[in-house]
């Protein structure tokens, strides 16, 4: 995990992508109790190739370093990482406002709690809805901030309730 984060920082420093932050369940774990997951969602601002968003340059660099794709992820130092491009303005904003954190001395970034909730609302699968419930019940949510983000992106502000 620490080695995985170090590789991600290297890739950013080398310009393979412009900015990264942890999202999904691994991102949520910065704010609430651990929940089972098997991959790490990493949101990235990708460089465009002939106007197209592509993960190919990331995969090429990682392959050169001996990291192999595994289904939709790429295995980096034992952790399957799924790179997700900043595919809409909400993700772009979340990445821009990502928080700098450290994991046992290794610097990294995590999406802000309110953006994690908004993104899960926007994605809207069953597991995303469960994550919204958990983050709302257990996270230290800035409700004013969340309402402001939801308002701008046409999302319904979730209610606070007991954790599922």
């Amino acid at each position: 995990m620490k080695a995985t984060l170090a590789v991600l920082s290297d890739l950013e420093r080398e310009g393979v992508f412009r900015r990264y932050a942890i999202g999904g369940a691994m991102g949520a774990m910065f704010y609430v109790e651990p929940v089972v997951t098997y991959d790490m969602d990493v949101f990235v601002v990708l460089s465009t190739v002939r106007g197209l968003l592509t993960r190919t340059p990331i995969y090429e660099v990682l392959r050169q370093r001996g990291y192999e794709p595994q289904d939709e992820c790429i295995l980096i130092e034992g952790v399957p990482v799924q790179f997700l491009p900043a595919y809409n303005p909400l993700v772009e904003e979340a990445l821009e406002q990502a928080r700098a954190v450290e994991v046992e001395g290794v610097p990294t970034r995590v999406l802000p709690l309110e953006h994690l909730i908004a993104l899960a609302l926007q994605t809207g699968r069953l597991k995303d809805r469960a994550r919204v419930q958990l983050l709302m019940a257990e996270g230290a949510v800035n409700t004013g901030r969340l309402a402001e983000i939801c308002g701008r992106y046409g999302l319904d502000v979730p209610a606070r309730e007991e954790a599922p």
Binding site: M1, K2, M29, F30, E33, P34, V35, V36, T37, V101, V103, E104
Partner: peptide, 11 residues
């Protein structure tokens, strides 16, 4: 966070 990752490994 690192301890949460350890809990995750157990889970």
């Amino acid at each position: 966070y690192a301890d949460k990752v350890r809990v995750l490994l157990r889970l």
